[in-house]
Nucleic acid binder design. Structure first.
Ligand code: FES
Ligand code: FES
Lengths: 146, 146
DNA sequence: TTCAAAAAAGACATTAATGTCTTTTTTAGT
DNA sequence: ACTAAAAAAGACATTAATGTCTTTTTTGAA
């Protein structure tokens, strides 16, 4: 309901790179997909989009893989949502009637506005770096299927 | 993202019946689908589920159609969500990792908990009757595509 | 320069949500 | 009893999201 699987894969993928990449090596998509138990090629498409948006960098060829970009840790979650789910949901009426609009509200409009604005606020202020907790030795578990 | 189309159709359908039924007549699915510009047979399936849950009543045959049940107006929106979308979304991790669980939280857990609890609270306290505004001559417009 | 490793790209498959059409069942009135 | 009207049921179609497989492009190192 709230967010697509793609969004979850994107966030877990970038967090995995952020957690391990500082060791110096690039992270291969195969390793990410294996460790996170995510469909490899599906994840690859999502990672590619993140690279296009400069949320990650990647290099092809031997010793290649994914690594952080200068903006990775400052990237807001809303940017990931934009990439994976799009922003239409935030200004489309929950009853699928039309563009959501306070001048011409549906019966649920103001309730939904509050909920969506809460989510928008949270995702606008929270960055990928905010979610990364390198000090926690169990952090890797928190982004893996148990 | 937030809710399915089915949910929107369900709410608009039941509000349409609640708005017009007190005139004494049963409301036919054909009329509802036409006036709300909703796929007729798809809506019919959703209406049937609401009847099974006693959120509406229906009678077959000539002069039949849909009408309110004793509990229609007291029905909480969460009941509609249960019918159309299910409740799993409220206790499944946003990262699709597993059952959502504060003892073993994913990096987004507490942010999502707040958002979801806000939505749960709103949908638990708001009833169909709360959304029905018979005094408003434009209410019908607010549940129709403009 | 060739080779192998890796991401990128693209074709295709599966699944879940949404939508359409037809048949069956029920029922009010004649 | 018969007929017609209406919901209910069910078969099938379309679409969007998710997932798999293969080919192409890029690149570092021998
Ligand atoms: S008009 Fe329906 S949610 Fe805003
Ligand atoms: S554990 Fe992920 S949202 Fe609760």
């Amino acid at each position: 309901m709230f967010l697509s699987k793609s969004f979850g894969y994107a966030l877990r993928g970038v967090l995995y790179v952020a957690l391990l990449e500082p060791k110096g090596k690039k992270i291969k998509i195969e390793q990410i997909a294996d460790k996170l138990a995510v469909p490899r090629h599906f994840l690859a498409k999502i990672m590619k989009k993140m690279v296009q948006e400069n949320i990650l960098t990647s290099t092809k060829g031997p010793y290649g893989g994914f690594s952080l970009s200068p903006i990775t840790l400052q990237t807001k979650l809303l940017h990931l949502v934009k990439i994976t789910d799009g922003m239409e949901q935030f200004n489309t009426c929950v009853l699928s009637l039309r563009k959501c609009n306070s001048k011409n509200p549906c019966p649920l409009h103001f309730q939904m506005l509050q909920i969506r604005d809460g989510m928008l606020a949270e995702f606008s202020k929270t960055s990928i770096g905010d979610l990364l907790d390198k000090k926690n030795p169990d952090f890797i578990k928190s982004i893996s299927v148990i």
